[in-house]
Design a binder for these strands. Structure first.
Lengths: 184, 184
DNA sequence: GTCTTCGCTCAACAGTTGTTGACTCAACGA
DNA sequence: TCGTTGAGTCAACAACTGTTGAGCGAAGAC
């Protein structure tokens, strides 16, 4: 029993984070449309009106919830291709809720689609200009698409053959395939 | 101006098909949740109540609309793996609206997710038992996931690098990658 | 202690949704 | 010709949705 456990500013930050956390979880599980402000509020043990007061609209709540702390760009050492091949395992492991929420919504929420397309286009460009040859952009796009497909099948659809495979094993098995795309 | 262009039975079949066609288009474009009975009815130039009278519920309308005429199983000649590799091009070309509707909805509509998972699991099993070796099932699952990812990126997200690439070129570039998975 | 600020709740509005029942009218069988 | 069937419409209900404004009560400033 602390005397004054929460100052006003502290209280605000906590409930705000509680709402964001609940929103991330529900957006990730149901996608944008099927997520209701009321459901988020209930999960955060808060009145629905408070969610509006904090974030203005459902759309802005979504944007805030899926805004990712921006991964440190690169260690700058490895070639992008080698780095991707090295990080497959990590990308197969448990993804942040924000990413899942984004992916879950990208096929039915135009804004999410735009956002994801932009991010993927960026990865493609980044890979492509480290690959050189003529159809590098296409091959890079197929690498990114492959990662996307495996992630969806694994994390969102739960294909039975992938469900109980460890991230490392998936990464290992997938590597030759991506390698084939990386080279001509 | 035909005298009696439409018998009663004929009329019914036509409007039913008109509704189904409109439903497929809108489901494919917006997914299950964002598709409204009213929108389908309007596109079919029909009263919303008629849609209900014909199909009973939005869910049943969806099921009927995405029910695919079941592709002729196989020509029975080629090995499944070779057949997949041969048909990549076709799968990259314009897909039936029913398939697009299914894919569009699979991340946000539980029933669609279940259906797709089942279909993909089937393809995985079919591929896997033609591949033999130890981790065949995992490799088959990754092949299917790759196809899924490329299709999503190409048809639903519209990655810029894939948007203006011809189906044949995509198939050609993707083949070595899938080949690498098919062999150990 | 007082006044103010502000986190938070309550109750409600307005729009949209899936769904339903009563009704109209032309096609059909006798 | 006449009664019946069934395709199609109209108006409405009930539930749910995002969103809003008035108000309560405790933390903070003075």
């Amino acid at each position: 029993m602390e005397g004054t456990p929460t100052s006003r500013a502290e209280r605000r930050r906590r409930t705000e984070e509680r709402i964001l956390s609940a929103a991330r979880a529900i957006f990730a599980e149901r996608g944008f449309q099927r997520t209701t402000i009321r459901a988020v509020a209930a999960a955060a043990e808060v009145d629905p009106a408070l969610v509006m007061q904090y974030f203005g609209s459902k759309q802005e709540l979504f944007e805030q919830a899926v805004r990712i702390p921006s991964i440190p760009p690169l260690d700058g050492e490895l070639e992008p291709v080698e780095e991707l091949l090295g990080r497959i395992g990590m990308k197969m492991g448990p993804l942040p809720q924000a990413t899942l929420a984004m992916m879950r919504s990208m096929l039915t929420h135009p804004d999410a689609a735009e956002e994801v397309r932009g991010k993927l286009d960026g990865q493609v460009a980044h890979l492509a200009d480290a690959m050189g040859s003529g159809d590098a952009e296409l091959r890079a796009a197929l690498m990114v698409s492959t990662m996307l497909g495996v992630t969806i099948a694994h994390q969102l659809l739960g294909l039975t053959a992938l469900r109980d495979a460890s991230p490392e094993r998936i990464a290992e098995t997938l590597r030759p395939s991506l390698r084939a795309l990386a080279d001509g």
